[in-house]
């Protein structure tokens, strides 16, 4: 039997290739950041006080994020003391809003606790994934800008 590439078949094949491509090729391991994130101002270095969390929406207005100045150097920290970090404020366990309580984030629902100085590490509790960290950039005018989310925000299958 000779193989004839009909137009119909060609379209089917193209659709299949697109599906394969959009599923991330080999194994769909979308390592963060794999998406295009907005740059959004989270605060200004002149206004952020040590231990006072500032909540902001990121990467869209349905996701709460939190910026803190720890007063000690942190992994991924920016600013002159490398102590400014930001995270998704949705607990990676079941999505409740985490609260900053001196040195750590605590989830009020099941008491999962995360260390903001260690990339949002779960050091106690039920969450099986670390809190997604938000890489920051400091502008010449002191504005602290959120640039991406490293980790999946709870409740989503795609951050943006």
């Amino acid at each position: 039997m000779t193989s004839v590439l009909t137009r119909r078949k060609f379209v089917q094949l193209s659709v299949a290739s697109v599906a394969l491509f959009s599923a991330g090729g080999r194994a769909a391991t979308w390592f963060a950041p794999s998406l295009t994130y907005p740059s959004i101002k989270a605060g200004n270095v002149a206004k952020i006080e040590v231990g006072k969390p500032a909540y902001f929406n990121y990467p869209d207005n349905r996701a709460q994020a939190v910026l803190v100045k720890l007063g000690k150097p942190a992994l991924g920290g920016v600013g002159k003391d490398r102590d400014l970090v930001a995270f998704s404020a949705s607990c990676t366990h079941m999505g409740c809003g985490v609260q900053y309580k001196g040195e750590r984030f605590v989830c009020p629902c099941h008491q999962s606790m995360f260390d903001p100085a260690k990339s949002g590490q779960v050091y106690q509790g039920l969450a099986s994934e670390w809190l997604p960290q938000i890489p920051l950039r400091v502008q010449p005018n002191g504005d602290v800008v959120a640039t991406a989310v490293e980790g999946l925000i709870w409740g989503r299958v795609k951050n943006v």
Partner: peptide, 11 residues
């Protein structure tokens, strides 16, 4: 950068 590979999109 994250300490290990994180994901921001799951199938």
């Amino acid at each position: 950068m994250a300490l290990f590979e994180r994901r921001d999109h799951l199938p």
